[in-house]
Amino acid sequence: MQKEVFVGSIVYSKAGRDVGKCYIIVRFDDKGYAYVANGTDKKLAAPKRKNVKHLESSGDVNETIGEKLLADKQVFDSEIKSALRAYSDK
């Protein structure tokens, strides 16, 4: 079963050249694509566009970052990078 994903969800890529990479969802577009960032090679200024079907939810949501993104408050690449550390190590 596909787990639902939200802004702030921590996800893994399961298709494309970045398979296995960990990201956080920073927004969705009108067509249902997710924009993801990891704070390193995919920064907030230029997040990667991914089909939601090609993302696997970790089951976790970083609520602090998610709330800031939804409230249009500034989020920082180092904040995302730090938040994803524990997941990238897995």
Partner: peptide, 10 residues
């Protein structure tokens, strides 16, 4: 850490 900084209070 060797590969970056981890924020413990976030």
């Amino acid at each position: 850490w060797d590969d970056g900084v981890e924020i413990l209070t976030m």
